[in-house]
Design a protein around this nucleic acid. Structure first.
Length: 869
RNA sequence: GCCUAAGUGGCGGAACUGGUAGACGCGCACGACUCAAAAUCGUGUACCGAAAGGUGUGCCGGUUCGAUUCCGGCCUUGGGUACCA
């Protein structure tokens, strides 16, 4: 066959890319009689690093599917765009003084060039960029729709605020309690009558409505990250440090926008049953929502009118309550503490306050607490139990108070043991006295009217009794919190509201977009306000009117971009009704599992709200989700003897690493002699006395010779070895290219490499032996020298080889290593395929002869198989 | 700990609803072409065994005429998650 050089590959691919572009072959129309298919990739954040081979994996899969569906007669929407707002561009601006708009555009151009070279069939005329004012106009508009609605728990959907004001004018709010049960009117009440509503002034009404709005302002505990100068969402905080950068995060109160996603907890949970996500993905979302069913009940505080309300999923264990625990932040702590215990309690509260989030996270197992001196009465048994406070009880979950059942709950058990609180056993031999047993299968003992019942059956009996006696009620709790929606950042969507008299009012549709003002000052203004606060004229744009100095999180633009693709140039609506109805749900959505909680939940939420408001006739955005696996890197290691510049091949490393370097003198002597036999002069040997052993470099004159390492044990100078990563491109397979390595890093230029020959013997002669490297599969990272850039593959082998090989690596969903050795196979495969239709000179060569029955059979079997696969 | 996915040759991985285990590729070996190498093409390649034959899908057991596939128990690895009462 004709061989194609790199230049020819480039020429051919360029030619067809240009042809496709000129002829608009991938342009998609909205009005067509064809059935639709919507194949979507998670749009990328255009980072400065460009694409690596992991990025295109999902894009290639979706591209193949889109192409297939198109050939099968579907009208396929297969767009691409950019999630272009975000923190990295802003940080880059701070460090390099480049405006985020500029660096973002540069990065987008680079991404588009890279995507283009892989030959994707996107309809680029539908491209969206979340930082484009024409786009974020509608992000702001949708935000205002969310601001303008509330969740009606009776109809189980979002409704316009006007329906709520009508209710307040006619019925008051008795039937529609505040979503936050702790909220009180200035008079201390939680309900009001229509006459009271009418008497409220404008600001008071707005404050009450704010309690119901699905996008609302409130003073909330937020994750404040000093280093980033911003607030982070819960899912941007991992183990008490920031997801990006790993900086410490502390709690802080700020007036923030939030989305009342908790109102949708149940619908978000139920919706999972209707959509085709992987089990693990659904499970992650379920865990995040964290539904638990149980009951709330009140314990009377002895010699006081106070009641402590607890939430429990195990009311069956109520007779096993040996103590109560309040969160340190609980409102009642100071009220119930008698003066005799005030000192102790205040001391403990101080201690808790001093504990950072990081410390609390790191020392989860540490038991701390303090007795308040007060007692509570068990409403069912009448028994009095001590009330403690402890940081293991969280203020933010349930009621911020628990009933301690040490025989059944591990944490309660540890607490009781630590503070010597007597433990009541209600589960007989299921409790050994050593560990708590959370079983539901035990027969209850010492449990009054529940005696003799199996625990899982007693749960319902106990709840019924509690409800009958009006001690409490059945209750469902969710772990999920409302979503913090303010960011103290520059590079995001401004909030389209105007503050008058400290309350926000929506801007008119015609005033949108509220453009992000231009500035060169991206520094956070400190004390919680974002860079926009530096622009005094913009913030205080007119008398008595202020703008919000925060911007929205990147999730905002990403929460609805899949809708904009349907009608990307519409200037009157976020997308036209006809387009929305036609394209409907995304049929296949491909992207990484790292967006499991944030992006997917917020997208689902926005779609549900827009559905409730009548804009969409579907209430789940993604019919099917496929999570492509990560492509991991394939790193290469060399083994350096510590403190020297001698590298041993892997075979010796494997043998030596198990040797006891301090005690196994015989083995070490063997290897030292073994290596010494090769080296220009003896290198390994006694570098000191028998008691003090040092490693020295014999090439340095003795008087200047520094002690490189002092081991104190073996006297051979043969020390432990370290693994060093070398660039994967310096290695073919596992054989190191030594000359390339010497050039790669100057400090390796004089290194000695002990090679291994076929029999595993050491040699320095490169014609007799090889340096074999170690290898490991780990994440692709610049610092691991294992990053593969798809551009290089396209240049050397062409786009088709890259595409084929990425699909060939293994199942789309599995994470798998990028091992370059296999790419030749795909290249050869394509060449052989090409040769089927071309002669030796590269000319098209097929026969027009009538196919035989046998040939037709093969053809159709193949078609069928390809289609099914 | 809990949830979840997975474990098959030297390697990446096939095998759809229980029906010939190892497709395809890498690697390796041999052969053809070549003065030679590369490229290309062909043949072989799960393991043990000279062969006949036997053994094999993480381990132990079960259901079945038949199990990589279903059931029970265990081991290992990846991912998620955790003072959530």
């Amino acid at each position: 066959m004709a061989e194609y050089s790199k230049e020819e590959i480039k020429r051919i691919e360029e030619k067809w890319r240009n042809t496709w572009q000129e002829k608009n072959v991938y342009k998609v129309e909205n009005d067509t009689s064809k059935p639709k298919c919507y194949v979507l990739d998670m749009f990328p954040y255009p980072s400065g690093a460009g694409l690596h081979v992991g990025h295109p994996l999902g894009y290639i899969a979706s591209d193949i599917y889109a192409r297939f569906k198109r050939l099968k007669g579907f009208n396929v929407l297969h767009p691409m765009g950019f999630d272009a707002f975000g923190l990295p561009a802003e940080q880059y601006a701070l460090e390099h003084g480049v405006h985020p708009a500029k660096s973002t555009q540069d990065n987008i151009l680079n991404f588009k060039r890279q995507l283009g070279s892989i030959g994707f069939c996107y309809d680029w005329s539908r491209e969206v960029q979340t930082c484009d004012p024409k786009y974020y106009k509608w992000t702001q508009w949708i935000f205002l729709q969310i601001f303008d609605c509330w969740f009606n728990r009776k109809t189980n959907k979002a409704e316009r605020i006007t329906t709520l004001t009508w209710i307040f004018e006619n019925e008051g709010n008795a039937e529609y309690p505040f979503p936050n049960p702790k909220f009180r009117l200035p008079n201390g009440e939680s309900t009001f009558l229509p006459v009271e509503w009418k008497a409220f002034n404008q600001k008071q009404r707005q404050e009450i409505l704010m309690q119901y709005r699905l996008a609302y302002l409130a003073y909330t505990d937020v994750n404040w990250c000093e280093a980033l100068g911003t607030v982070l969402a819960n899912d941007e905080v991992v183990n008490g440090v920031s997801y990006r950068g790993g900086f410490p995060v502390v709690k802080r109160q700020m007036r923030q926008w939030s989305l009342r996603i908790t109102e949708y907890a149940e619908r978000l949970l139920k919706g999972l049953d209707e959509i085709d996500f992987s089990d693990s993905m659904k499970e992650i979302q379920r865990n995040w929502i964290g539904k638990s069913v149980g009951c709330e009940l009140d314990f009377d505080v002895v010699k006081s009118k106070n009641k402590i309300r607890v939430f429990t999923t195990r009311p069956d264990t109520i007779f096993g309550v040996d103590f109560m625990v309040l969160a340190p932040e609980h409102d009642l702590v100071r009220q119930i503490t008698p003066s005799s215990h005030k000192g102790e309690v205040e001391k403990y509260l101080k201690y808790v306050e001093s504990r950072s989030e990081v410390e609390r996270m790191a020392e989860v197992k540490k038991v701390t607490g303090c007795f308040t001196g007060a007692y509570a009465t068990n409403p069912l048994s009448g028994r009095q139990v001590p009330i403690w406070i402890s940081e293991y009880v969280l203020a933010g979950y349930g009621t911020g108070a628990i009933m301690g059942v040490p025989c059944g709950d591990e944490r309660d058990h540890k607490f009781a043991k630590h503070f010597n609180i007597p433990i009541t056993n209600i589960i007989g031999k299921h409790y050994t006295g050593e560990d708590a047993n959370p079983t539901k299968d035990a027969i209850l003992e010492n449990s009054g009217f529940l005696n003799g019942l199996v625990m899982h059956k007693a749960i319902d009996v106990a709840i019924s009794a509690i409800e009958d006696k009006k001690l409490g009620k059945r209750q469902i709790n969710y772990k999920m919190r409302d979503a913090g929606w303010s960011r103290q950042r520059y590079w995001g969507e401004p909030f389209p509201v105007v503050f008058r008299n400290d309350m926000p009012y929506p801007m008119n549709d015609v005033e949108l977009p509220l453009a992000l003002p231009n500035t060169d000052n991206f520094k956070p203004s400190g004390n919680g306000e974002g860079p926009l606060a530096n622009l005094k004229n913009w913030i205080n744009f007119s008398e008595g009117a202020k703008r919000d100095s925060n911007t929205m999180p990147t999730h905002a633009g990403a929460a609805w971009y899949f809708l904009r693709y349907m009608d990307p140039h519409n200037e009157n609506e976020f997308a036209g009704k006809a387009a929305l109805d036609y394209w409907n749900q995304v049929d296949v959505y491909i992207g990484g599992s790292e967006h499991a909680v944030a992006h997917l939940l917020y997208s689902r939420l926005w779609v549900k709200i827009l559905h409730d408001l009548g804009y969409l006739n579907f209430d789940e955005p993604f019919k099917k989700l496929i999570n492509q696996g990560k492509i991991t890197g394939d790193s290469r290691f060399v083994y350096r003897i510590d403190g020297s510049s001698i590298f041993v091949s892997r075979g010796f490393y494997e043998k030596l690493k198990d040797v006891d370097f301090y005690n196994d003198q015989d083995q070490l002597t063997k290897y030292a002699e073994y290596f010494n036999a090769l080296l220009p002069k003896p290198y390994f040997g006694a570098g000191g006395s028998l008691t003090r052993i040092t490693l020295v470099d014999d090439r340095i004159p003795e008087e200047d010779r520094p002690i490189i390492k002092d081991f104190g044990h073996n006297n051979l100078g043969l020390n432990k070895m370290s693994e060093l990563r070398v660039h994967v491109e310096l290695v073919s397979g596992v054989e190191l290219n030594i000359e390339a390595l010497r050039k790669w890093r100057a400090d390796f230029s004089d290194a000695i490499f002990i090679l291994e020959d076929e029999n595993g013997n050491p040699t320095l002669d490169s014609s007799k032996g090889k340096y074999i490297t170690g290898s490991a599969i780990e994440k692709m990272s610049k610092s691991y020298y294992n990053v593969i850039n798809p551009d290089d593959i396209v240049t050397n082998y062409g786009a088709d080889t890259l595409r084929l090989y990425e699909m060939f690596l293994g199942p789309l969903e599995a994470s798998k290593p990028w091992i370059t050795s296999g790419i030749d196979g795909c290249y050869k495969f394509l060449k052989r395929f090409w040769n089927l239709f071309h002669d030796n000179n590269g000319n098209w060569n097929v026969s027009d002869a009538e196919p035989t029955r046998e040939e037709m059979k093969v053809l159709h079997t193949t078609i069928k198989k390809v289609e099914q696969d």
